[in-house]
Computed example of a mutant assay.
Amino acid sequence: MHDDHGGRHGNFDDFYAGGHQWSGNPNEALIREASELTPGRVLDIGAGEGADAVWLAERGWRVTAVEPATAAVERARELAGQRGVDKQITFEVALLSDYLAASGEETFDLICAFFFPAPVSAEETDALLRLLKPGGTLLWVDHDWEDRRPERMNPATMESLIAGRMSSMDLRHSTRDVTHGAGAHHHEDIILRAVR
């Protein structure tokens, strides 16, 4: 199956228009990678329907969740309200490029992106790194696609863009066990974890 979760043509609203798309659970890689981090400020890029943002907020993080699809953000806000963490999450309905162009001096202890369905330019990567505090963690995860997906931001591509500018980088494969939602047919991910 060759889904791109709405990203190939930028039809994010169309993708989410038909109802819930994801399992409603936080990503397994987020739980594994972030559980031992000290909560601070986190930028969740491509936040979708908010499961990751809510999970982070429930653990004490102050979350900025960026997502271009209005329908997805409405579901994320509803979920955050149901779980009592809506005051800890700032939702931004925006493309990453627009958010970066408008971002101020705020910096983050964690920047994470899961299955981001669009390329990220070198300039946008530079802007992201400026938002990451010294000692902060960048977590970039995508499926291990069988074919090249130039319309997506592969963790290995991100690694090449930030090489030499981080204190540590770890790129590895990880299995996943998701039984429902639009990503259930993917069983292997690539995880980039880098510390500035």
Rank of each mutant, 00 (worst) to 15 (best):
M1H: 13
M1Q: 08
H5V: 15
G7Q: 05
H9E: 15
F12M: 11
W22I: 01
P26R: 02
P26S: 05
P26H: 03
A29Q: 14
L30P: 03
I31D: 00
A34M: 06
A34S: 04
R41L: 14
D44F: 03
I45D: 07
W55Q: 06
W55E: 03
R59A: 02
T70V: 10
A72F: 07
A76V: 11
L79P: 02
A80W: 07
G81I: 06
Q82M: 02
R83C: 02
K87Q: 15
T90Q: 14
F91V: 04
F91H: 13
V93W: 10
A102T: 01
T107Q: 10
D109N: 04
F115E: 00
F116Q: 05
V120K: 15
E124H: 06
T125L: 07
D126C: 03
D126P: 01
L131E: 04
L131S: 05
K133V: 09
G135Y: 14
V141C: 01
D144E: 15
D144A: 15
D144V: 11
D147E: 13
D147C: 00
E151C: 00
M158D: 07
M158C: 04
E159I: 00
S160F: 01
L161E: 03
L161Q: 08
G164R: 12
G164V: 03
G164C: 13
R165Q: 12
S168C: 06
D170A: 14
L171G: 07
H173D: 10
T175V: 01
D177P: 01
T179C: 08
T179W: 13
G181Y: 04
A182H: 10
G183C: 00
H185W: 14
H185Q: 12
D189I: 05
I190M: 04
I191Q: 12
I191F: 05
L192Q: 11
R193L: 14
V195F: 00
